[in-house]
């Protein structure tokens, strides 16, 4: 199988630009006529690339979740602190009223 035939079979042209560039870069070092060994290399490459992308997606998702949890915790903490300050102010208001009365 030729490299051009492989490219057509994989429908690389319709892939996103980023993937197209990466795959074409990987294939650039290969000869025009591909052996079964080359095909296996491409298969391994695609497997590894997919695994890397999936792991990156998971890692970025985890990081995004952690940051959102931090933001939520800060918001909750702020609300709690506001409530505590409100209680202190209320106590002092009562003390002031007791003195005036």
């Amino acid at each position: 199988m030729t490299k051009i035939e492989l490219i057509q079979q994989l429908k690389i042209e319709s892939a996103p630009e980023e993937i197209k560039e990466e795959v074409m870069g990987f294939l650039a070092d290969m000869p025009d006529e591909l052996s079964s060994d080359h095909i296996q290399q491409v298969t391994d490459y695609l497997f590894t690339a997919q695994a890397n992308e999936a792991e990156l997606a998971l890692n970025y998702t985890d990081a995004a979740n952690a940051l959102e949890q931090y933001a939520d915790a800060v918001d909750r903490n702020l609300v709690d602190e506001d409530r505590q300050i409100g209680v202190v102010l209320h106590d002092n208001l009562e003390a002031a009223q007791n003195i005036v009365n």
């Binding site: 892939a15 996103p16 980023e18 993937i19 695609l46 497997f47 690339a49 997919q50 992308e53 999936a54 990156l56 997606a57 970025y60």
Partner: peptide
């Protein structure tokens, strides 16, 4: 990356 993974 998830999109890329799907493509691969």
């Amino acid at each position: 990356h998830q999109t890329n993974s799907t493509w691969f």
